[in-house]
Design a protein around this nucleic acid. Structure first.
Lengths: 230, 230
DNA sequence: TTGATTCCTTGATTTATGTCAAAATTCATT
DNA sequence: AATGAATTTTGACATAAATCAAGGAATCAA
């Protein structure tokens, strides 16, 4: 069983925080067991603290006017929930309920705010993490709305080059199959596009190492979407 | 000319903060004019503060090994830059330079951290903003990797329903043309899909009002991607 | 080495969706 | 209401990419 500490230090909100900060967070958090079907909070409850799932599965839902349950999200280990209204000082806009037995950490709003005041670098780190992810996703969304696969792929390469801090070579950290699905396509198409881009000397591929041979060409491709024909 | 205060209160990092907090931020910020071609910071400089563009245009770039400039981002009014390394206590990984004459606000790291310690709800608000946007983009990225347009569209409707806090009806806040481009398609295709979805009683469309008639059907569509044939 | 998986590539075909052209509708302004 | 501009819809056609089917690498365990 993974400990709360392990989960936290890999979670979206706290990943990469120094161990001392994780300890400080654990010190103010309250661990609660959750059973399937158990209500964690209800729509309209005051947002007096947020949660991080440690184990199990939580669903967030609203009831439609006919009383039907509309699931909005499911959250597993490492994923926070309720933090948006809590950070903003709002009531919970939906209901949270256990789906699979597990446990969650509850971070009381007040104690969390005090922790930040005592130790502002925790907040700074969190802001850094969130900003970075946000920037990543902003670019990613732009990429994905590009109509054609070669353009999305070129955009992905440029984004990765930036994030890996190397403008000339990137290493795929996921399999080509996963990459295909991530780009909204399938392995066959990805494979063909990689070949085509290699033939045009935009890139060269050696396993998971991609060399970016023509950055300007890739940028044009990402912007205009069309590849010149062979 | 829009004032720094107006820009800040609509910026990604600070939008929606109470006026008092914006004032507090302005009190620690230093306004600097920027001319075209002026260096703001260089790769490797210590990240002793971050910037928000007020007016003009800033480019962020790195130099390739052959000394060629690789532009990573351009930032206009309201957009922060340098905040990721600064929040995380790193050096700047790239160089910032003015492209169009304007001005920027500089937030010294130290003063900003002290501000957070004095006034943790500023940090809480920022965390709330970033978390919300992050959640939005996370879902959006998932949607956009769905292969077919009807699935992406259904996903978009469900996301909007959640954000507009109304599970049964949404109001498009962008034109259908823009929506098409946002979903990575074109107005013609969007139009056809809306008709098809209406014919199947998944939705009904009255101008920019979309009524979600079959939420489960939409969820299935978003998940499995296929529409049943006419 | 062998066999067993998994991952990646290639080819033939079908299908979804983009392109082009034009009509219809909506919206804003007089 | 009437004009004009912008947006949306429709139709015929072209094409990028998905599907289906098969075969090759690469990886791993014994």
């Amino acid at each position: 069983m993974r400990t709360a500490k392990q989960i936290l230090s890999q979670s979206i909100l706290f990943a990469g925080l120094p161990e001392a900060d994780i300890e400080a967070l654990l010190a103010i958090a309250v661990e609660k067991p959750v059973t399937a079907g158990e209500l964690i909070f209800s729509e309209g409850d005051p947002g007096d603290g947020f949660y991080v799932t440690i184990e199990g599965l939580i669903k967030i839902y609203k009831l439609s006017t006919e009383g039907k349950e509309q699931i909005l999200h499911m959250f597993g280990p490492g994923e926070p929930f309720g933090e948006v209204p809590v950070f903003s000082g709002q009531a919970f806009p939906a209901t949270a309920e256990g789906v699979k037995k597990g446990r969650v950490l509850f971070f009381p709003r007040r104690a969390f705010r005090d922790l930040i005041a005592r130790n502002p670098s925790v907040a700074m780190n969190m802001l850094g993490l969130l900003s970075q992810r946000l920037r990543h996703f902003t670019v990613q969304v732009e990429n994905l709305s590009l109509k054609e696969v070669p353009a999305r792929l070129a955009g992905y390469f440029l984004l990765q080059a930036e994030e890996q801090n190397n403008p000339e070579r990137i290493t795929l950290n996921i399999s080509k199959g996963h990459l295909a699905s991530f780009l909204g396509t399938i392995p066959e198409t990805l494979s063909r596009m990689l070949r085509k881009m290699s033939e045009q000397d935009l890139i060269s591929v050696e396993g998971r190492e991609i060399r970016l041979l023509d950055r300007q060409g890739l940028a044009d491709l990402a912007e205009f979407g069309k590849m010149e024909n062979e």
